[in-house]
Amino acid sequence: EKGIGLAYTAGLIHQMSGKMHVESVPGKGTSILVDIPVVLIENKTVLKNIDHQTEEIITAENVGESGVRSFIRKERKPLILVIDDNVDLLRMLEESLEPDYNTVTATSPLQALTIATQHDFSLVICDIMMPEMNGFEVIESFQSNILLSHIPILILTAAADKNIEYTGYKKGAVSYLSKPFKIEELKIKIESILSFRRELIYRFQSDKDFHYNEITCSAKDEQFLQKAVSLVHENLDNVNFDVEMFCKNMNISRTLLHTKLKNITGISTTEFIRKIRLNKAYIYLKKSSMSVSEVAYLCGFNDPNYFSKCFKRAFDVFPSKVKQVS
């Protein structure tokens, strides 16, 4: 039986300062009338948010035939996109996750794919069985799109079939949850995925010699990162190699390059170039007979003093000390 229950509905209506009137006649049926306060402002409908702390702007852009609806609060929380054709489930997840995460929900996978390119999502939760486009196709669409390939995907399904779970992982999903599930179980899954992503970013920032497949979630991201690192290596001693030249050689816009690097590595494009240079400098200092100044110039720094400051900030040791130990 579908539905979220009369008591649950009444609770939601009450939290939105609304009223529910129920009339029931034995043998004839039940009629329910719901009143929710609405204010029109500049042709936009504003409803009170469930927790009374924010307002939700509902327009044709985010609620319409597509069924897209969003709760995005001002606090900096992880942003999660939830895709499912079950509206009741979406509303339940929206309310349950809201204290810890910002959420955008969509009943239309095609619309969700468009929305995914417009926001910086930390995670996608996607149902497998949907009429317009199944979850496997959604995963493939994310994995093949350079704008979206870094976003981890958790799949949901009501089908008790291990083959579905296996196929989901094979397509690129990072986790799996069977319906019905407890909300606490989902929250544990979400936090585990986000913690792992933070660990990957930390690994990139702390390791001087990393493997691309260890810090990326997709083959496309692995190729992207490998190309980015190779470009910096190819221009290691070029002091004029900057963000503009980097973008031109990567053949993508400055905004996209920044977004991708930020999501994969946690740092900006400028910081990325500097880190790759400093990583190489550390290796040279450990394994070669070059002086600190020679290494600085070789790695694209035209000021040895500035190089030493950057090196100390990155590795908490001066390059001269690394040279002495080696």
Results as ranks from 00 to 15, higher is better:
residue 173 A to P: 06
residue 174 V to E: 07
residue 175 S to K: 09
residue 175 S to C: 04
residue 176 Y to E: 07
residue 177 L to T: 06
residue 177 L to A: 05
residue 178 S to L: 11
residue 179 K to A: 03
residue 179 K to I: 03
residue 180 P to D: 10
residue 180 P to A: 04
residue 180 P to L: 02
residue 180 P to W: 05
residue 182 K to L: 03
residue 182 K to R: 09
residue 183 I to F: 01
residue 183 I to P: 00
residue 184 E to T: 05
residue 184 E to K: 02
residue 185 E to N: 13
residue 185 E to K: 14
residue 186 L to G: 01
residue 186 L to F: 01
residue 186 L to N: 05
residue 187 K to L: 05
residue 187 K to S: 07
residue 187 K to Q: 13
residue 188 I to H: 04
residue 190 I to A: 03
residue 190 I to G: 06
residue 190 I to M: 01
residue 191 E to M: 06
residue 192 S to L: 00
residue 192 S to R: 04
residue 193 I to F: 07
residue 194 L to S: 05
residue 195 S to P: 01
residue 195 S to K: 14
residue 195 S to C: 00
residue 196 F to I: 10
residue 196 F to Y: 13
residue 198 R to F: 05
residue 198 R to K: 15
residue 198 R to V: 07
residue 199 E to D: 15
residue 200 L to R: 15
residue 202 Y to N: 15
residue 202 Y to W: 15
residue 203 R to I: 14
residue 203 R to P: 14
residue 204 F to I: 11
residue 205 Q to P: 09
residue 205 Q to L: 14
residue 206 S to W: 09
residue 208 K to I: 11
residue 210 F to L: 06
residue 211 H to P: 04
residue 211 H to A: 08
residue 211 H to R: 13
residue 212 Y to I: 14
residue 212 Y to C: 09
residue 214 E to K: 11
residue 215 I to A: 02
residue 215 I to K: 06
residue 215 I to Q: 01
residue 216 T to H: 00
residue 216 T to D: 00
residue 216 T to P: 02
residue 216 T to M: 00
residue 217 C to K: 00
residue 217 C to F: 05
residue 217 C to H: 01
residue 218 S to H: 08
residue 218 S to E: 12
residue 219 A to W: 00
residue 219 A to Q: 12
